[in-house]
Design a protein around this nucleic acid. Structure first.
Length: 294
DNA sequence: CACTAAATGATTCTCCAACA
DNA sequence: TGTTGGAGAATCATTTAGTG
């Protein structure tokens, strides 16, 4: 079973601690209103979670859903210690159906965020319900820090705890990716795409013609379009317009420059054309946009 | 998989005029 | 000063077929 976590999530650590299974309450029923992540710190832990019984070794992790009932079992065997953290998460974790291994690849590299203000897609972290970490000491180290942080309750400890939890989740998701032997090498086309996007980001107001792009990147334009579309879902010039308009909006709000000057500055020699594009992308004409802002 | 050539359809861009 | 619209030319985007 797998879960996906949105990149745009807000996390909140509720509590974290180290639990020793010699504590007699280990065999009582436990449940809580939050997500709970358990990582075995030492020894073996026998844990029963809603009817299914797990035997977890050091470094293994188990992700519990809110209100999921869990308790220890197998009282005969000696058991160890585990870290746990309870957290809330918005949006919630989604159950993730992993049909093909390639889905992970898509989550990892297929679409990329550009430098515009709009969010084109959410990258999802994929977290397995149960997993043995490849970097168990790093994981346990992070947990140790998390528990310390929550105990000290000073400075920005809640903020720090959130970052630590994020790092823990990222580490686990990264491990999972690696275990799938995916996400290792970036394809060459991705590097081409990066170079292209960098060029657009830097020169969008001056020179992004077909010829220049071919010359700078030493690839045929047809290919560049193909690659750009593949990673972003949009076209080169649509992206350039977005960059220009984004800057124009800023200039309209923050300066007293005329529309004509702004058009010139962001890369539209023809102010008539600038107006038209602005209207198309923003919904209102430049001057109206400026007037509507306080 | 990375890339090119060629063909074709799509859109963007320029320039002009009319109007608020 | 700024917005909107049209017409035609210039560019751009996409597809298909093909190479190593």
């Amino acid at each position: 079973m797998y879960f996906s976590l949105s990149r745009l999530v807000s996390l909140d650590v509720k509590w974290a601690d180290l639990f020793d299974t010699s504590n007699p309450t280990f065999f009582d029923q436990h449940h809580n209103p939050y997500y709970e992540l358990i990582v075995i710190a030492d020894g073996t832990v026998h844990l029963e979670v809603s009817e299914s019984r797990h035997t977890l070794q050091t470094g293994e992790s188990l992700l519990l859903m809110p209100w999921e009932v869990h308790r220890g079992w197998n009282a005969q065997e000696r058991q160890g210690q585990f870290f746990w953290v309870q957290f809330s998460c918005n949006p919630d974790l989604q159950e993730f159906v992993l049909e093909r291994a390639s889905q992970l690849h898509i989550a990892h590299a297929e679409r990329t965020e550009l430098r515009t203000t709009e969010v084109h897609r959410e990258d999802l972290l994929v977290l397995p319900r149960r997993q043995q970490s490849l970097q168990r000491y790093k994981l346990l180290g992070l947990f140790e820090q998390l528990v310390q942080t929550m105990k000290q309750s000073k400075d920005y400890f809640r903020f720090h705890a959130t970052l630590l939890l994020g790092e823990i989740l990222l580490l686990m998701a990264g491990d999972f990716l690696e275990q799938r032997q995916l996400g290792a090498a970036s394809p060459a086309s991705y590097l081409t795409f990066r170079a292209l996007a960098d060029h657009l980001n830097n020169f969008y107001e001056s020179d992004v013609s077909k010829e220049t792009l071919e010359r700078v990147l030493e690839r045929k334009y047809e290919y560049l379009c193909q690659v750009f579309k593949k990673y972003t879902g949009t076209t080169i010039h649509h992206y350039v317009h977005q960059l220009k308009i984004q800057r124009a909006k800023h200039l309209l709000e923050q300066t007293a420059k005329s529309v004509k000057e702004i058009a010139e500055e962001v890369g539209y020699p023809d102010p008539f054309y600038f107006s038209r594009i602005f209207k198309k992308l923003v919904g209102v004409a430049p001057q109206h946009y400026r007037n509507s802002k306080p």
